[in-house]
């Protein structure tokens, strides 16, 4: 049952699977293409920020991409998927939206959905029953530990990530 549901859901939502993307992407920083998904592998090519790539596959923190005539592995976080380019929420995405609008699977996915907007949130009235339900569904730390153990998920030490420099603003949201 599960095996038939998964591809169907992926098709309807047009969510690319983890292994076969073949989707457009844009390089977010000057980067290297490696022959293998490892920073110690041979460098196949250099790709500049803004370069358009075709995403072919994903493996851990790496994407296999085609950039011009070169194919190789690039860090997952050095590329954005989608047609929007570097612009983030800017001009690039408007173009991206326009080019995607003709995709019929997208239209199916978006039509007739129950959304949630800021007006809904503003008008919201306290729902004590639903909150009680949520409280009751909580689990204990021991239950969660046991669940992790069942699949061999083990806590490991990982250092904090530094806030990238230079600082872009002096807001009060810094590390606590």
């Amino acid at each position: 049952m599960k095996t038939t549901l998964i591809p169907a859901a992926a098709l309807v939502l047009c969510v690319a699977s983890a292994t076969a993307w073949a989707a457009p992407g844009t390089v977010l920083r000057n980067e290297k293409l490696y022959s293998q998904p490892s920073a110690s592998a041979r460098v196949a090519a250099n790709v500049p920020k803004g370069a358009r790539v075709e995403i072919l596959a994903k493996q851990g923190g790496w994407l296999r991409v085609k950039a011009g005539n070169s194919t190789g592995w690039i860090r997952l976080l050095s590329v954005r998927a989608g047609a929007g380019g570097l612009g983030g929420a800017g001009v690039g995405d408007v173009v991206g939206a326009a080019t995607r609008r003709s995709d019929p699977s997208r239209v199916v996915a978006v039509a007739g959905l129950r959304g949630l907007n800021d007006e809904d949130l503003k008008r919201a009235q306290f729902n004590a029953d639903e909150l009680a339900r949520m409280e009751a569904l909580g689990v204990t730390a021991a239950q969660a530990r046991s669940f992790a153990r069942q699949s061999g998920v083990v806590a490991v030490k990982v250092a904090e990530l530094p806030k990238p420099q230079p600082e872009q603003s002096s807001s009060p949201w810094g590390n606590n």
Binding site: A16, A18, K58, L76, G96, A97, R101
Partner: peptide, 16 residues
């Protein structure tokens, strides 16, 4: 990051 990639791949006009 993988989830962010999937969201980045959605069209800008997606009402969701």
């Amino acid at each position: 990051p993988s989830v962010l990639q999937d969201m980045a791949a959605l069209p800008a006009g997606d009402k969701r």
